[in-house]
Nucleic acid binder design. Structure first.
Lengths: 136, 136
DNA sequence: CGCGTATCTTAGACGTTGTCTAAATCTCGC
DNA sequence: GCGAGATTTAGACAACGTCTAAGATACGCG
């Protein structure tokens, strides 16, 4: 965790650069599920001259190298998730916010019984509202 | 099933029109998961002068009235599914084709145990390949 | 029937998201 | 410092979807 980001990139076969480090430092540490536009806005705070193409290139590179997962869950917008281990997602219908749901929190049965389908991965996508805080 | 499409629309509070009927006759009967562009292309075969805006308006109207379900599962493209009852989806990674998976084919447990989340609906999204036909 | 209002449809402009291209810049070993 | 290869850049481009203003259509009412 305290591993320098530059080394993390190199470990994944990615040559570090100022732009890539800036993108990595935001997107690999966030708990949110930012879209490319949010990444661009954030990173511009640190590297104002970074171009849109570089952000897209970098995000796609990170996905290809396994540092990020790309999600298309709602609104037709692609978002990125640094949490690459399998997990589920809950979408708050009010705000559109996406929340991670731990893999162990749900149990899906009979996936292996599906006829004619070779399942490589799956997840449960839930929609609803965050429950009001329980009074007491 | 033999119910005239026009009556089906009226039953859902939708005033029939030539354009809406043409869209309905395709999109409510297909087994595919067409995007708006495919609906437009199909419907143009019967009503050549129909506009893009009308197709989008009509599809959105059908979704609002509960005749269609709108899905955003991959590629950032919205597709429509006339199968409005709950079910799961399998995405063929090779072709991008989306296949319905019957609700009963999978069993998801512990949804009601999620803390702080009021789940209104959920589905399992599976990705993989269609299994090669079993040789015999 | 004729009129007026509601609704529906249309073409095209517009906005957003994402990709592509060609040129400029950077890095790094030598 | 040089040169090859990788990286970044601005802007054009493309796909998807929405919006607007104007025209067409349907429908109730006198």
């Amino acid at each position: 965790m305290a591993e320098p980001i530059a080394q993390l990139l190199r470990d994944h076969g990615i040559q570090p650069s100022a732009q890539r480090l800036a993108v990595a430092e935001y997107v690999l540490r966030t708990q949110d599920h930012p879209g490319a536009d949010e990444v661009l806005a954030r990173v511009r705070g640190r590297v104002p001259m970074i171009s849109r193409a570089t952000v897209y290139n970098t995000l796609n590179l990170f996905v290809e190298k396994g540092l990020l997962r790309q999600l298309v869950l709602g609104e037709g917008k692609t978002v990125f998730d640094p949490h690459v281990a399998p997990h589920h997602h809950f979408i708050d219908e009010a705000s559109g916010a996406i929340h991670d749901v731990p893999w162990e929190a749900l149990e899906v049965r009979k996936v292996e019984k599906l006829q004619g389908l070779e399942v490589k991965e799956y997840q449960v996508v839930l929609r609803g509202r965050r429950a009001p805080p329980r009074r007491g």
